[in-house]
Design a protein around this nucleic acid. Structure first.
Length: 262
DNA sequence: AAATACCACAACCGCCAGTAG
DNA sequence: CCTACTGGCGGTTGTGGTATT
């Protein structure tokens, strides 16, 4: 039988995405919706494999993504869900709007795991570790966690007030926020997007022109440092719409062939 | 100031499930 | 039922940035 690789590795670019590649991918998906990922790189003029495009989109470019550290509420939710679901990161991520499985997985491995161990809780079973000595030996094993995680926890506590902005602390607010998907209604989103596109005159074809943002942090969705440089600040405006991709796809001229959801 | 260690997270890899033909 | 193919998932790695020595 044998399985074909997702792409032939020859002539396929790997490694970090450039701002220009991001723009191409976003522009393509905004104008055409999400068709089969295998075809995306060719149609969008990218030297990437489809899988790489899909990952980049779902983990990084999707406009409905929240960025920044997980709030304490989100963190607690992750712990609870992990206790029930285990390492089913995509299922966990589905309960945290604006968060990706990759992001949660990373956060689990780098922060939560250490915290739990330090608290004497086995992150795998969520049961108390056999004894405190084991806990201590394990925690020393995990990156001398006491040394650094203390300071980080302080930091994260401090930053909690900042990151909490992304998730309303009031539970009723939160539920409505969750239901709404932290976004405008579908029609509004589309209208906003089209207005924005016309106003900003975002080039849909190459060459990519300078496009700078003057409005950073409108809805508090975009937080923390973004990996792209100033030349791609336009993404901030783009993300600020908090729009849902599915609406775009539903209304796009080119319908998704697989019909799957985000 | 330079070297080294450590951390966070973006990206990749390999596998699996679903499905069309 | 079988095969080929795609999208998605979870584990792992690579790399850039930051802290420490």
């Amino acid at each position: 039988m044998g399985r074909q690789p997702c792409c032939d590795k020859q002539g396929v670019k790997r490694g970090p995405w450039t701002a220009e590649e991001d723009k191409k991918l976003i522009s393509f998906i905004l104008t055409h919706g999400r068709c089969c990922w295998r075809a995306v790189p060719k149609l969008a003029g990218l030297l990437r494999c489809g899988k790489s495009c899909r990952l980049r989109w779902t983990n990084y470019l999707r406009p409905d993504l929240k960025r920044g550290l997980l709030s304490t509420a989100e963190e607690q939710l992750v712990i609870d869900l992990h206790a029930k679901l285990g390492n089913r990161w995509s299922k966990i991520a589905a309960k945290l709007p604006g968060r990706t499985d990759n992001e949660i997985k990373n956060h689990w491995n780098t922060h939560i795991k250490k915290k739990l161990i330090k608290m004497g809780i086995d992150p795998a079973t969520h049961q108390p570790l056999a004894n405190s000595k084991a806990a201590i030996s394990q925690s020393t094993d995990t990156a001398e966690s006491a040394k650094s995680s203390d300071t980080r926890e302080e930091l994260s506590t401090k930053e909690g007030s900042r990151t909490d902005m992304a998730l309303p602390t009031d539970s009723s607010d939160q539920s409505s926020w969750l239901e709404s998907g932290n976004s405008a209604s579908g029609q509004d989103q589309e209208r906003l997007m089209m207005n924005w596109l016309s106003e900003t005159d975002l080039p849909m074809d190459e060459p990519w022109l300078n496009f700078t943002s003057s409005n950073d942090d409108v809805l508090g969705i975009v937080e923390g440092p973004l990996p792209w440089d100033g030349a791609t600040d336009w993404l901030l405006d783009y993300q600020d719409f908090g729009m849902s991709c599915s609406n775009l796809i539903d209304n796009s001229t080119l319908h998704s062939s697989d019909g799957s959801n985000f």
